[in-house]
Design a protein around this nucleic acid. Sequence first.
RNA 1: GCGGGCGUGCUGGAAUGGUAGACAGACCAGACUUAAAAUCUGUUGGGGCUUGUCCCCGUGUGGGUUCGAGUCCCACCGCCCGCACCA
Length: 848
Amino acid sequence: MSRYSAAQIEANWRKAWDEAGIFRAGSDPAKPKYYVLEMFPYPSGRIHMGHVRNYTMGDVIARHKLATGHNVLHPMGWDAFGMPAENAAMASGGHPKDWTYQNIADMRDQMKPLGLSIDWSREFATCDPEYYGQQQALFLDMLEAGLVYRKNAVVNWDPVDMTVLANEQVENGRGWRSGAEVERRELTQWFFAISDMAEELLEALDGLDNWPAKVRLMQENWIGKSRGLQFAFGLNDGPEGFDRVEVYTTRPDTLMGASFIGVSPDHPLAKDLEKDDSDLAAFNAECRKGGTTEEALEKAEKRGYDTGLTVRHPFDTSWELPVYVANFILMDYGTGAIFGVPAHDQRDFDFATKYGLPIIPAFLPAEDADPHLTAPYVPAKTEPVHYVSNFAGDTWQSGADAIEATIAFCEANGVGQGVTKYRLRDWGLSRQRYWGCPIPVVHCDTCGVVPEKKENLPIRLPDDVTFDVPGNPLDRHPTWRQAPCPKCGADARRETDTMDTFVDSSWYFIRFTAPDAQTPTDVAAAEYWMNVDQYIGGVEHAILHLLYSRFFARAMHITGHLPKSASEPFNALFTQGMVTHEIYQTPGDNGRPVYHLPEDVKDGRLADGTPVQIVPSAKMSKSKKNVVDPIGIIDAYGADTARWFVLSDSPPERDVEWTASGAEAAHKHLSRVWRIASEIAEGSADGNAEADEALLREMHKAIHDVTVGVESFGFNAAIARLYAFTGVLAKSDAANAAKRQAARTLAQLMSPMTPHLAEEIWQMLGGEGLIAIAPWPVADPAMMHDDTITIPVQINGKRRTEIQVPQDMAKDEVEKVALATDAVQRALEGAQPKKVIVVPGRIVNVVI
RNA sequence: GCGGGCGUGCUGGAAUGGUAGACAGACCAGACUUAAAAUCUGUUGGGGCUUGUCCCCGUGUGGGUUCGAGUCCCACCGCCCGCACCA
């Protein structure tokens, strides 16, 4: 008998699937549709184990749906715009386009051996002009609908590379590539009006029952709805045009504890004052320079500048509070101005302590309040809070009630209004980069900003660009910028900013439903295929990509590109864990460890015998060298082994640690299954009917358990069940016919995870056609329960013995059997039990 | 600081409130072999004695609810993740 050879099997079956065209999504109305999608990859040029895990999970779902009679859409594409292509071009002198398409070709070649049930006919890359041209059309429609606009905004500006950087591209206040200190700069940029939809995006989260609660919560926090009071302090002797300072607070109940007013360095008042105050101008400039990174903020000291101005407290106009410009106040949240309550807020406390401002407790009981507090005074949760009406009245309330009551009180007394605010800000999409989707507008000296005509789309990126100097190549291109004004025809200039790549990924899943349409979408196709029934990807996209996509689906409905039913594009979301690996390191110079690839380490030592230090498992990363190349694994063991292993050891939402022994074990198991099937295929040994019955019963239980596992993302549990069933089959004395049936079923149950091996076994055992499209087995309930069952007997909740009883035995009969056991009789010592609990089919508990 | 999650053998992990440790890895022992590999079988939470179809303990710690708790509730400890000068 020959041995299991994945290399031989796998290529054959991929060819067979290809020729049969079984993964091509049709529109068979007789079948229910099912759209399964994994987040599409960035074409870095190399697939990694994370991809393998992600796509394998999606493939298990897709193949299972195919076998259960669904019309399945399972597409793949490339998130192909972005900075790495430009960085590669800058580093090696190539062109981003060549680099990207070469990487796509390479990655496609690496992915195909995985045997994924993908409809490759729908493949596209976001850098294809056919795609980004439609994206430009979408942009124009959104512009017309008021969903896109231009405004002046503060951004991270890298003065060396001369481009805007996203927040995540700023490290410790410096540009991640240039190392230059990032400046905050005001620029006119394009924005999507996502914040207008804040309430709807928040409310609709409630309906996303099949999303992880964690992701919904993260989005909820990100949208950040808050309820508060907005009102003004009257300003004494302010500059021209400034007679009040508008503030927003979520804690109006602390109003009587106010001791100063703080405004942002970017606040209009601060900007006005700095005109005549060079010290303040210097202070503001210093504040604006400060980085916006987490670390920079943590280190930054609370600093303020006393403007010398004062405001009047709304409830006691003789009470004057100083006005400071303070570095910790953000211009783009609330009104850019606050009142400080040092007694109840750590930041305000730090500030007040530094500048010798009063610390006034706003809550009773006043007798507990120390007039010389050394730390913020925080009332206990249950303690009644005496809110503003302490000043004017006598009502006692707490928490949110106190805040609402205070707002009502303030409104009644003409001090401001209750308002709802959101943290969510509009999405700035302008990037001063070449390798992105050009924003299709023209700047005309007479007409201003003019949308490009749709018939001129796509506005293509020019190919003749250079990357030898920093900045945006589109800006310095000799001719590309020149364009006639679509309105008046005069010479005008193209917009040279391109779109954030998150725009590309916000609607690609809709484009998959009609990838060749001459409009952004084919609404009928979108209506048929949308929504994505199951979306799978990393939790790192919990906010940005998933929130943007939810916004886009709504925007596309508004602009007529999608039915309303697709406004929430992803019915179910699953966030899978990472693939991790131990890190091997040896001490290097200057205390920095030297990392070693897993393949260079044997038994804890390098080839030359040097022992390595093993650092606990972490996400595979090139810099730590704790990576295992999927290609190497596929070459050594086959794709089925890689697929089986990444699904087997851990629940899919958790990280899985790649271990050499685990991969080896997976391969051994698949070899074993292959061997068992081969023996059955060759064998003709007789068995006994009793063994047949037992085997088939086990088979039906396995069908049930594995099906449940596959349908509920319990892949690891399904695989454990398959191990167990394989063991039963291997030991069974059943006749060949029964074994054959069981082995064919085993192959079917394994087919979503190990499709190639499953096909091979199916064929070996005389299965008809391709297993990939053979109807999924159905468990027979009659075969799933045994006539006689074993149930444990507890005494006072502790297991003491077990009894065998007929499955359908009456409760009191079961009780009698249990009481008659030696263990129970011994424990009773002739007495009567106090109570006997019988859970049918489950357990008996005798209470003594 | 705010929000969320998780703590189970040597390891990954399993367990609708109902036999804790399924299934794997690792280790050890045995079979086969001249030997090794491969394969197959078996053992493995801790402790005790009277070695049994035995007893006690055991799911981070301490309480509670329940006939019964890894699972539910309260408090604490530890770890992980997300957000964050957001007023």
